[in-house]
Amino acid sequence: MTDAQIFETVKQNVLKVLPDLRPGDVTTEGTLTDLGANSVDRADVVTMSMEDLGLTVPVSEFQEVHDIRSLVDLLARHA
C-alpha cells in the first residue's frame, strides 16, 4: 500500500465527514482543523480510514498527529 493510496483514502473520508469541501481543498500540507473539522470529525476520519485500510492503530499513537501528512505517515507505518 503506497502513501498515495493511503492519502486518497484519508481524503475521501475527509470529504465524507466535511461534505462542503471541494476535493482540491484536501492536501497533505493542511490540517483537518483548518479544513473545519471538530474533534469528533477528526476522530471519525481516523476510524473510517483505519476501517477502509484494514488497519488497527492504538488510540495513543494519534497524539503525534498534527496534520494530514503525519496522519498518512502514521497509517503507513501500520500498513
Binding site: 469528533v40 476522530a43 471519525d44 481516523v46 476510524t47 473510517m48 483505519m50 476501517e51 488497527t56 492503530v57
Partner: peptide
C-alpha cells in the same frame, strides 16, 4: 474490530 467503531 472494535477500533473500527465510528468515533461518533
Amino acid at each position: 474490530n472494535p477500533a473500527h467503531l465510528p468515533a461518533r
